[in-house]
Design a protein around this nucleic acid. Structure first.
Length: 431
RNA sequence: GGUCGAUUCGUCUAGGGGUUAGGACGUAUCCCUUUCACGGAUAAAACACGGGUUCGAUUCCCGUAUCGACUACCA
């Protein structure tokens, strides 16, 4: 690990080297003087008030002050910064792997501070020195850095490191879904979805921001989603594992334009990954969430429940919330459904079904569950379709859910009969 | 304001001098399903605008518009 503060003196040496070569200079201007200069320029309708090849001639720096004056100020410990001396007229060409050649005229650049008055380097200096020393071959960063890239290539040139200058690739930005600016950390989860990969707590304000991980976005799925924001393999495949991504990726196929963050697609990816996940892994989510609610669920049972639920959820946590009705005792019935669907026919069919279940011995699976139900309806001369919703209500308490016969198979005859008896005792036919 | 960058369905994008401009998400309809979902099918939906260049432009060039980034002794 490196610490910028530990490398302080080294950066200073490089900065001094630039001063010696005439590519940088000392500046003694106070912040008030800087401010005054900007105000003066603004008042004079100068389009771009900045410390540059023109204005530096009117400021306090080693270019305008006498050598003795500069030496005296340095010796007396006057605060100073070291600024880069941007050439007045020069085309700066920079190659970007994504955007191609970008041309900028040096007259639009300003004399950026390289060493701050506290003796620390600015990003620009540290970046170039570190990358050179560490033999960095590729600088891959967000597009917001594109405007300062010309300064960076100039610095490589001033240091005489042009031959080993890294390749640049400026990535398109992630934009807010409403199209208003780049997606930023500060947006937190005000947008209705997280911005941080994991829960994040602001130490100063104590605020916590929700993370994608905690919201139930699976790592592989999220990675896949993210990789496709601004990049695509050129064919129509969309599901890529980390290995696939490494195999297929190339910087050249990265897009140029900003990308709006679409959470609906992230959810779709999550659903795809959940459906492709091994049942045993899914079951672990179920048992863990159950345990958190103080309920112990056997692994085998969890697997069978998760099996019929996996196609219906976006997040793993929904496995438990949508499936717990199977392991928890049935207590409530959806009143709306009850008022609409609970009728005399349902009572007849269910009574007969409960009776058959109580007498049943043998292997009970979804198809036997169904055939027994069908014969119960037949014996009462009632069409099953007419009472199906009532059957669901009586056994699950709700009007919607996974395949009923599959649920019955997991419940087993005893629990099923018990639930039906309970429903029969609890619900009353209104009309 | 200035500099730089970008612009194909609502969104992510493929494509690229002659195409019915392709896919995915989302949306709608239908099928499947004794619920809801899954799945299947279908549909609506795009080359920002104006000039060139060209036999022909969505594609190349120039403008305009729009969006974005940057414009600190922050990164």
């Amino acid at each position: 690990p490196y610490r910028q503060s530990e490398r302080k003196s080294m950066y200073m040496q490089y900065a001094l080297d630039l001063v010696e070569k005439g590519h940088a200079y000392y500046a003694f201007d106070t912040s008030e003087e800087l401010e005054a200069m900007r105000e003066r320029l603004t008042a004079a309708r100068v389009v771009q008030p900045q410390y540059n090849s023109i204005t530096r001639t009117q400021m306090k720096n080693s270019l305008t002050l006498s050598e003795e004056d500069v030496a005296a100020r340095l010796a007396s410990g006057d605060p100073y910064v070291i600024r880069v001396k941007i050439p007045r007229k020069e085309e700066v060409r920079l190659h970007d792997m994504i955007r191609g050649w970008v041309m900028v005229h040096s007259s639009t650049l300003d004399d950026k501070v390289l060493m701050k008055s506290d003796g620390m380097p600015t990003y620009h200096l540290a970046n170039i020195v570190d990358d050179h020393l560490m033999r960095i071959t590729h600088v891959i960063r967000g597009e917001e850095w594109l405007p300062s890239a010309p300064l960076h290539v100039l610095l490589y040139k001033f240091f005489g490191w042009e031959d080993t200058m890294p390749e640049f690739a400026h990535l398109p930005l992630l934009l807010k879904p409403d199209g208003n600016g780049k997606l930023s950390k500060r947006d937190g989860d005000k947008l209705g979805f997280p911005v941080f990969p994991i829960d994040w707590k602001n130490q100063e304000t104590g605020e916590t921001a929700a993370g994608f991980r905690e919201q139930g976005y699976l790592p592989d799925s999220f990675l896949n989603f993210l990789a496709f924001l601004g990049w695509n393999p050129g064919d129509e495949r969309e599901i890529f594992s980390m290995e696939d991504l490494i195999e297929a990726f190339s910087i050249e196929r990265i897009g140029k334009s900003g990308t709006k963050f679409d959470i609906a697609k992230a959810k779709w990816y999550n659903e795809q990954y959940i459906r492709a996940m091994p049942i045993s892994d899914l079951a672990k989510f179920f048992t863990a969430d159950a345990a958190a609610d103080g309920v112990q669920v056997a692994g085998v049972k969890a697997e069978s429940i998760v099996q019929i639920l996996r196609e219906r959820v976006t997040f793993p946590a929904e496995l438990w919330t949508q499936g717990k009705f199977i392991v928890l005792p049935l207590e409530h019935f959806d009143e709306d459904i009850a008022s609409k669907k609970w009728n005399q026919d349902a009572v007849k069919v269910l009574s007969a079904y409960a009776q058959s279940l109580e007498n049943f011995t043998g292997e009970f699976d979804s198809s036997t569950a169904k055939s027994i139900l069908e014969s119960a309806a037949d014996s009462e001369q009632i069409k099953l379709g007419k009472v199906m919703q009532a059957v669901r209500l009586a056994t699950t308490g709700s009007g919607v859910g996974p395949g009923l016969m599959e649920v019955f198979a997991i419940l087993g005859t005893e629990e099923l009969a018990k639930r039906i008896r309970f429903a029969l005792a609890s619900l009353t036919v209104i009309d």
